Amino acid sequence: MEFSLSKEQKMIQEMVRDFAQKEIKPVAIELDREARFSQELFEKIGKLGLLGIPFPEKYGGSGADTVSYAIAVEEIGKVCGGTGLSYAAAVSLGASPIYYFGTEEQKQKFLVPLASGEGIAAFGLTEPNAGSDAGGTKTTAVLQGDEYVINGEKCWITNGTHALTVTVTAVTGKDERGKNIISALIVPKDTPGMTITSPYDKMGVRASETTQIVLEDVRVPKENILGDSQKGFKQFLYTLDGGRISIAALAVGLAQGAFEKALQYSKERKQFGSPISSFQAIQFKLADMAMEIELARNMVYKAAWLKDQGLPFTKESAYAKLFATEMAFRTCNQAIQIHGGYGYMREYEVERFLRDAKLLEIGEGTSEIQRLVISRQLGCR
């Protein structure tokens, strides 16, 4: 399979790279230190059309493909993992479910503002007792007249505070086998009874806000149920498959950013009268890093291409997410090692890349869950 980029994909790559270098990179250290989500940056990202890359023009998007979107995530992640995470979550988890499963009315009302860059959205799946076991959802939504009344709690939710809408999963009944029916519902910002807080002091991706959402007798019109009320579980599994491509792309970006810093440093740093890049121990580290980044990038492009072709991509997105995130942690760790003592210092930034990379092995399905997904796709039961 040939992964040479099209003219349009290269244009998006150059545009996002230029924006990331000029607008995000200068503030990345500050955003990490202050653990601050930049509303200003996301307004610029919206105006540039990046929030609508994979959505059709009739919904305010750019009409590009998933490969183009993955390229954009990588370029942002190359300079700031936190900003990259919020961007990926806004598109893959916030807006995409509405595009995949929403009615035409829902798309016009909720997707158009997101795709056209007016704001971002969030996806409320994880709960205090339902992480990897997403089927253990305890949040409930009861139909009363023309409204659903939602009660429950969500945690680790990216973009919650600034979201125009939060799509939450909730138990809406029982099927014929007595199992919970999980549905997805769109909850607009400032809906009475929805409280969003940011209590987490995180190790990494600190430029991304991670929130807690409490829903107390939150009422939304029954028209806000997303797609088939009986298939909420399948809907968010599909959503997560797509989201894993973006997390894998973010991992590639972080690894590429760390690698470039390590390569540059190795050529400048002299020991024993020579640049350390002349030492075979360093050369082999850099060779392995470059090779693994390229392998991971190809896996991301393949999964994205399959999705664009309407072909099954569950296994491939899990391959990409698992390999790319574990590769990113290895690569960022080696980048610190190449920097020596300087790598441990914040001003050299590679320590931030490592802290940011760790989250990617956990979010959107842990590495262990990815291995479970892959083994089941192989027919293991």
Score class of each variant (00 low, 15 high):
Leu372Asn: 14
Gly178Leu: 05
Asp201Thr: 13
Lys179Gly: 04
Leu93Ser: 10
Lys78Trp: 08
Pro275Tyr: 03
Phe313Gly: 03
Ala251Asn: 13
Ala318Val: 05
Asp356Thr: 07
Ala141Thr: 02
Tyr99Leu: 06
Ala255Arg: 03
Gln271Glu: 15
Lys285Gly: 00
Val187Asn: 00
Gly94Asp: 02
Ser278Phe: 09
Ser246Leu: 13
Ala248Ser: 15
Gly160Lys: 01
Tyr301His: 05
Ala64Asp: 08
Tyr344Asp: 13
Thr158Ile: 02
Gln212Gly: 06
Gly343Ser: 09
Thr195Trp: 01
Gln9Met: 11
Trp156Ile: 03
Lys234Arg: 11
Gly84Asn: 10
Gly82Val: 14
Lys222His: 12
Gly273Leu: 13
Tyr148Ser: 01
Phe329Asn: 12
Thr103Glu: 03
Ser62Trp: 03
Lys234Ala: 11
Gly77Gln: 07
Leu125Ser: 03
Ile182Arg: 05
Leu263Trp: 11
Ala115Asn: 06
Ser278Arg: 12
Ala35Asn: 10
Ser274Pro: 07
Ile276Cys: 10
Met345Ala: 14
Glu105Cys: 10
Lys202Asn: 08
Glu326Ile: 14
Tyr99Thr: 09
Val149Pro: 10
Thr172Phe: 06
Lys231Glu: 02
Asn180Asp: 15
Asp18Trp: 02
Ala122Gln: 01
Ala115Trp: 02
Gly145Phe: 08
Pro97Asp: 14
Lys58Leu: 00
Ser4Glu: 12
Gly341Glu: 07
Ile98Met: 05
Asp146Pro: 11
Phe3Met: 12
Val350Thr: 08
Gly242Ser: 11
Gly341Val: 07
